[in-house]
Structure formats: structure tokens, C-alpha cells
Simulated assay, not measured.
Amino acid sequence: MKALKRITEELRSKVEEVTLDFSESMHSIVTACFPKAMITLDRFHHQQFCLEAVQEVRIALRREEMTRIANERDEHRLMLKAFADMGEPRRTRMEALSVSMPHTIRRNWRMAKLVPRFWHAANTYS
């Protein structure tokens, strides 16, 4: 800043534009030394800042999607487990899931619960 102050006030007031990065310290120096200058952010740092923001959003969305897929996979595994083998907490969770599932999946799951009964009945009467 000392070096810039050596330039006369008249010459510094003629500066119309200064290009900076996102440095706060440089911003304060430029506003103090070149009061009439318009501050412009340089394209490289601005583009880098935008790309980093897009990358953060992309990563967050990807994590969210991976979590959703993992949860669906867990729900699918739970549906495949024989209803009779489930403990009470899992049965309660399965019943709750069956309410939130689309109609066809809910119908198929309920039919799958009946299979052990049919199997048992067929083996009993043969």
C-alpha cells in the first residue's frame, strides 16, 4: 500500500478499473488507493468459484441419491424376508412400509405373505 501511495492522488483517481481475485485484503487496498476505480473480479477465479459451488451441489445430490438407493435396497431385502421369520419390530416396520408403497407392490407383498400359509396347508393335506 505504501508503494501505491507514492503515486499521486491525481494519477490514482484516473484509474477506471481494477481486476482482482476474491481476496478481501486486496479489495480494501484498492478501495483505499483507487477510490474512483470500478472493481472487477477476474474471470478465472470467478469461474473457479462457480465450478466449486456446482461441484458441492453435485456431490450433495449424489450422496442423497446413494442414500435413497441404499434405503430402497434395504426395504426390498426386508420385503423378501419371510414374514413368519420376522420379529415383532420388523413386522411393524413392514406393515408401515406396505402402507407407503404403490398399490401393485403392496398387493404383491401381501400375496407373498400368504405363500407360507398355502405351503403349510398343501403339505398338511397331502
Rank of each mutant, 00 (worst) to 15 (best):
P116V: 01
F44Q: 02
V18W: 11
A84E: 11
D85L: 11
L41Q: 04
L51P: 05
R68L: 05
V30Q: 07
V115A: 01
Y125S: 06
R90L: 13
S100T: 15
R43A: 11
K81A: 13
I69K: 02
L11A: 00
K81N: 07
A37I: 08
R6D: 15
D21Y: 10
T92G: 12
R68V: 04
Y125I: 07
T40S: 04
R106C: 15
S126G: 05
L80W: 10
W119A: 01
A32V: 12
D42E: 06
E65K: 00
R110W: 07
R77M: 12
L51M: 10
C50E: 09
R58K: 12
L114H: 06
R43M: 13
E56T: 14
R68G: 07
T67V: 11
E9H: 04
A37Y: 12
S25G: 14
K2E: 12
I105K: 12
F34V: 09
E64C: 04
K113G: 01
A70H: 00
H120C: 00
I29S: 04
T8N: 03
A84C: 12
L78V: 07
E72V: 04
S13V: 09
V15P: 05
E88S: 04
M1N: 06
M38H: 09
R12T: 11
H103D: 09
D85A: 07
E52R: 06
V30Y: 14
Q48N: 04
E56W: 14
T8V: 02
L61P: 06
I29R: 00
D42W: 13
Q48C: 04
G87Q: 06
P89S: 01
K113N: 09
K5C: 08
A82P: 10
L61Q: 02
D74L: 11
R107G: 01
S100E: 15
P116T: 00
L41W: 12
R12N: 13
R73Q: 10
S25I: 12
I39D: 04
F83R: 01
R62F: 15
E88V: 03
G87W: 05
E52H: 09
E16C: 02
R110Q: 08
P102R: 07
K36W: 09
M86G: 01
V18S: 03
P89Y: 01
I69D: 05
L61C: 01
H76Q: 03
P116K: 00
A122I: 02
A70V: 00
E52G: 14
E16S: 03
I29W: 11
F83W: 10
T124R: 02
K81C: 09
P35H: 08
K81S: 03
S25E: 15
A84W: 12
R12P: 15
I39K: 00
S100D: 15
S25K: 08
A122S: 03
E9Q: 04
T104V: 14
L20C: 10
S23R: 06
V18K: 00
Y125L: 10
M79I: 13
W109S: 15
N71T: 14
S25Q: 13
Q48F: 09
T92I: 09
V15T: 02
L78W: 08
